[in-house]
Structure formats: structure tokens, C-alpha cells
Nucleic acid binder design. Structure first.
Lengths: 203, 203, 203, 203
DNA sequence: AATGAATGAGTATTCATTCAT
DNA sequence: AATGAATGAATACTCATTCAT
């Protein structure tokens, strides 16, 4: 097995274990026995447990960037109709979390109770999504598809929180839903709420 | 100092420390030195660290129940206008988290990465809110103030996620906002989004 | 057993083991099994292995100060005849090392190859003796009992080196001499060399 | 690079590192990175770390033998005047240590705290010097240049201890003296003490 | 001969919990 | 009830050595 392969194998096993048991309840011993390597080997690739976890977060983050960024062509395409653009963003975000349950668990759950030493790495995920959402909202305001009186920051938080919780609750294996999850359907439902609101018109 | 007092003192110190440092990074040593008691004393009141944390979650949970449940009279009062009822629920929920930053940190952050051993205790908070929100939505549907085509479960998750994130981001001391937070204002903004949606009517 | 007793017991066992096996070849495990205590107990009294060793050096050093300092009355008493004062100093120094073979081994042997982190503590022993010897020589020059043309620093080094080596070679248990060592006799021989030199007068 | 060259290069780097950091604080990693070779290569030339250190001591010892042995012709030459012979021995010994600071540090410092496993190799240095010094003294006694009443063994230890300490303190780079060290001057001062003693004649 | 990734025994240290006083 | 010294299982990390390439 080549070094690069082995490193990825370690990261992979670590991802599974961290996602299942959390940072503190995952021991180096667990990781090496899962990966089928010797105790010392792990320290050839990572300085220590913290560095391993950081590296893992790093690799997950790189996946995020690739997944949820929308290209200029796509922007044009989806900008036409209000809601269609937001829907696309939502769908892409849900797809990111849906694509990898372990990732989802680590980013949305494991990561949360950790110490400031990981703070920076942890925030990157939400900061990135927040940044994109705020950009989307501002863009919408500029194009006059989004109401100008809404609070950008608060709304971005509202959407992000909604997406995190829905991802967490619908995608994680230990919170199983009956049948397969249909992201298009969920997206549509969410967009519908943000399009029309919750309430009937009380003309 | 009376036993009951002492127990509360321990819980209080533990709350501060857990909220700041997390479960694993808070040591018994920290708690006893913060509480000014002897090492053994803590075990007179709690079986072990886990029991102490559970007891703490218990006491926080009892506060939740008292805070966000809406009495039948209030239901009547707020049911009249669509949105006013939801707004009231949102406000009460935000107030609950705003009232105690440590509580907010523990419930929304510290608790997240923990092991299944706490799972049950942890879920109670969100389950309670979810139950109430779902009830609200169903009630709204029955009274024909809420659109019948929305997905109750998903919408409850959406609202809960939004409220959690907003609480976390606006109330916690280490995520400071400029100036004091105005819950009424935040509530109004959130309600507005759920009333009218995000978008301008495109005639 | 009282805490103070226990701490001394640990220091005592550590002294024996360090003196025999050196710093790096003495494990915490060795010390605790020698002292008959639990693994954690040692860390109640000392921060870590380094701190334990430092504390040990400290206590040995305090013994040195008590042993080789000569009171003003003694100075007067011995100052009368040249050589008698130096002899007294030599005797006191030899007695210090002779009194405790472990001390002797630690100060003269174990300590030598260690890292800068102990440098300060290690130097104290030789610095103290050097300081005293240099004082003695200067005093002798002032009283015109010592030749004014000798180099104080170099001579102090010469005497110190001689005393260290003789102590090490005559006193240490693993460098055994036949029969008991007679410090008075050794002292006399050393003084004789420094009194008359090594050589016959070749008048 | 030829094998022999490479082996010497390793020994050379090891010497520098051991002399600076001691045996236990010098890692194989340090040596290979200093020598610019691969980890495995070192084991082609030496069985293990202990063997490497032994080989190093061996090579240093061979230097000692070459340096401080005095040829029969020289014996004749210097035997004439008392003191001149001893002075020559002292000078040669000091020169040996002065010629190589790393050697000096290893022999006089690093080596000291080590375990019995090196005992034999370590003693060789001092044994050799002791053997020579004792021979010198006995020779002096035979030629009636040295006082017959002095204790050969003790005196040899005294001189050896003095030379070790003076070498260590005057030659090592981390115990710097102002200006360059003049071995002839030091030798002269030492010999003077052993010639005339320390004290003024109080006839 | 040279390489360097892999190995795993060895070690210091932590920290929740106990229990004699 | 309160104390705090003692406990020891658990754990991360090191580093000399090996061996397939």
C-alpha cells in the first residue's frame, strides 16, 4: 500500500470512528485497530491526535468548498426566477451533507462541543455557508427578487440553522427516516416555505 | 451551609464550567476548586461525573418546561391572528435561551458531541420544542391559519433549527453582538419571514 | 503514614534508584514499586519526573550548605597555621560526600551527562565549593600564608577536581576500597601534597 | 561516498550531537538528519545505538593512547629535572582534551551518568591516565625526584581529578574563558603548585 | 548498499473515584 | 457530612530497530 493510500485509509477510519463516538471517545487504539496498522504508524502521518482530527476537518472542508459553490454560469441560469436560485443553493447544501453521513455527523454534531483549539476549523464550515447565503440574499435584494426589508444576517442564520438541523435529522444513520430521503422533495418544501410563508392569506 | 444549598452551589459551578469548557475538558478538580469544597464532597451529592452532568441537564430541562409551555388562556389570546401565536412561541423560546447563557451553551453546544449515554437527556430539549412546534402547526392547520400543504415535521425542524442557531449566535457571550440584543425585534423579523416569505411578489 | 513522611520516602527511594541507575534509566515504575505506593501518588507530591529529580537535588544541596560552610569561630581557630585551614575545608568536603554514597553518586556522576534543563541545579554544588575555595585562597593570600603568585581560579579548580575525583573513587560503593576509608588520613595526605609539593628538594 | 568515509561521517556527526546533547537526548533521527543519510543506513555500519556510541568511544580512546604516551627517548629527555617530566605529562594530557572539545565533553561529561553497560569503555580513559600517572610517580620515586612518602594511588587520583576538571572548565565551549586558553601557561601554573606547594614558607 | 515506511514495546502522565480519618 | 491523600486503569506518544523495495 502506498503512503498516500495509507494516509487516506487512516483518515477514513478516523472519520468513521470520530463520527460515531466523538473526539474524546475515540482512542488512537481504536483507529489503529480499525485501520489495521501499528501504533507508531499513525504518528508518521500526523503529529498527534489533534493534528489528525484537524487534517480530517481540513479534508472535509475542501469537499464543502467544491460542493456548494455556485459558478457564475449557474448563477445566471438560476437567477431568473425568484426562489429558483435559493432552491439551488439549498439543494447543493443538502446534497453535501447527504453525500457523506460521517461528514454530516462530524461537522454538525461531533465538532460542536469541542474546545477553542478547534474553533477556527469548526467555524469555517458555517462561516462559508453563511458567507454564501448572505451573498445570495444581497444579490437577491439587488435584483429586486428579495424583500429589501429583511435582515440579511439574521435571515442567513435562519436558513443555515434550518438546513443544519434538517440535514442532521434526516440524513444521519442513527436518526433514520422511513424509506429513502428525497432531497429534491425536501428542497421543494423548504423553498415553498420561504416563498409563500407559512400562513394562509387572510384576505 | 445547608446540604441543599451546597448541592445547588455545585450544580451552579458545574454549569459555568461545563458551558465554558465542555464536558470532557471540565475536570472534577475544576469543579471542586470553583465550588470551594473537598474532592470527596462532590460524591456525597452525585454518584459520579456523569450523574452530575445528568442532574444538571435535568435541572435545565425543568426550566425549559416552565418557560416555553403556553397555557390554554394564552393559546386563545394569541390564536386570533395568524403569526401572533407563532411569534409568541418563538419569543418564549428565545427568551428561554437568552435568560441563561450557560444553559444556552450547554444545551446548544456542549451537549452535541456527547456519547449515546447522554443521548436521551439531550434529545429531551429538542424533542420538547419539536413536540410543541408540531402541535402549534397542527393547531394552525385545524384553525385554517396555517397552509395545509406544508410538511409539519419538516417545518418544525426548520423552525427549531433556525431558533437554535439564532439563539446560539446572538446570545452566547463569545459570539458577541454589538449592543444589547432585542428579543422582540428578532422575534418580529423571524415572524415576518414566516408570514410573507422572503421574496417580493412578482405580480 | 503522614504526607511529609511519604514525600520523604519517595525522595529517599528516588535517591537510591537515581544514584544507582541514573536519571534516564530510572523509571517512575521503579520508584513507585520501591516506595510501595500507587502510580498516581507520586504525582501528588511532584509535578513530574523532572520536578522529582530537581527536588532531590535541592534537598541534597541544602545538606551541602550545612556541611561545608565554616563558621567565623572555626576560621579563627584554623587560620593560625597554614594548611590547617585548608585541611579543615578539605576534610569537611570529603565528609560531606562520604556521609552519603547516593548523594555522592548523584552529584558527582549521575548529574554530569544531563541536559541544560538541570544545568542550574547541577552547577550549584560545584559553584558553592568553588566559591568557598576561592575565598579560602584569597584569605590565605591576605594573611600571607598562601603564595601570592598562584592563580586563584585555577587553583580552586585544581583542588575541587582533586576532591571530586578522590571522593568518587574512594567512597562510592561500586568502586570499593579494601577496608574502611579513613578520611583523616586522606585529608592529611592531600594537605601534605599541597604543603610541600610532590618533589624532593634538589638543593 | 566510500563506505569508510560514510562510516566516519556518521561517527563525526554522532560525536557532535552526543557531546552537545548527551547519550539519551541524542536520537538516531538527529544523527541521520545531521549526516544526511537514511534511517536504515546507520544500521549497516553499527549494530545499534549502543554499538555506535561504543565505536565512538573506541575511536576517541585510540586518540588518547596516541596522544599521551611518552616515548622512551622523551622520558630520558624530561627525566633530568624534577617537575619537567610531570609538566610534560600534564601538558600532553591537556593538549589531548584541548584538541577536541567534543571529545572533551563526551569523555568528561556525557559519559559520566551512563549505565554499567558502558562502564568498561568509560573507565578506559581514566584508567589509562591513572596507569600512566602512577607509573610516572613510581618512576620519580625510583629516581629520587619524587618524595617517597606520598601515596601513589591517591596522588594519581588527585592529579587526574585536577586535570579533568581544569580541562572541562577551561576548554569546553559552553564554559568560555576570556581570550584564548594558553596551555603552556596553565601547565606551568599547575606544575608550580606541585613543585612548591601552595603555601609560603613560614620558617 | 541504501532507503524510509512500518513496527510495537516502553513510558510518563491524567483523572475519576474511593475510603480512612 | 466533609475531607483530601491514595489509587490505578486508561491513554497519548516516543523512538530504536526492522525489512521489503
Amino acid at each position: 500500500m502506498k503512503p498516500e493510500e495509507r494516509k487516506n485509509r487512516i483518515l477514513d477510519c478516523a472519520k468513521r470512528l470520530f463520527s460515531k463516538n466523538g473526539y474524546h471517545n475515540t482512542q488512537i487504539s481504536d483507529i489503529i485497530s480499525e485501520a489495521g496498522i501499528a501504533r507508531g504508524t499513525i504518528y508518521q502521518y500526523f503529529q498527534n491526535k489533534e493534528d489528525l482530527f484537524s487534517s480530517l476537518l481540513d479534508s472535509l472542508y475542501r469537499g464543502l468548498e467544491g460542493s456548494i459553490i455556485i459558478s457564475p454560469e449557474e448563477v445566471k441560469k438560476y437567477m431568473a426566477r425568484p426562489g429558483s436560485y435559493l432552491g439551488y443553493r439549498i439543494k447543493r447544501t443538502l446534497e453535501y451533507f447527504y453525500s457523506d453521513r460521517d461528514l454530516c455527523s462530524i461537522v454538525l454534531r461531533i465538532t460542536q462541543g469541542l474546545q477553542p483549539e478547534f474553533g477556527h476549523l469548526i467555524r469555517r464550515f458555517e462561516n462559508k455557508l453563511m458567507e454564501l447565503l448572505k451573498g445570495d440574499i444581497e444579490l437577491g435584494k439587488k435584483h429586486s427578487t428579495v424583500r429589501k426589508d429583511i435582515d440579511t444576517e439574521l435571515t442567513a442564520n435562519l436558513i443555515a440553522g434550518a438546513l443544519f438541523r434538517i440535514s442532521y435529522n434526516y440524513f444521519l444513520s442513527d436518526n433514520p427516516r422511513h424509506g429513502r430521503v428525497d432531497i429534491d422533495e425536501i428542497t421543494e418544501k423548504i423553498v415553498s416555505i420561504f416563498m409563500k410563508g407559512l400562513f394562509l392569506e387572510t384576505s
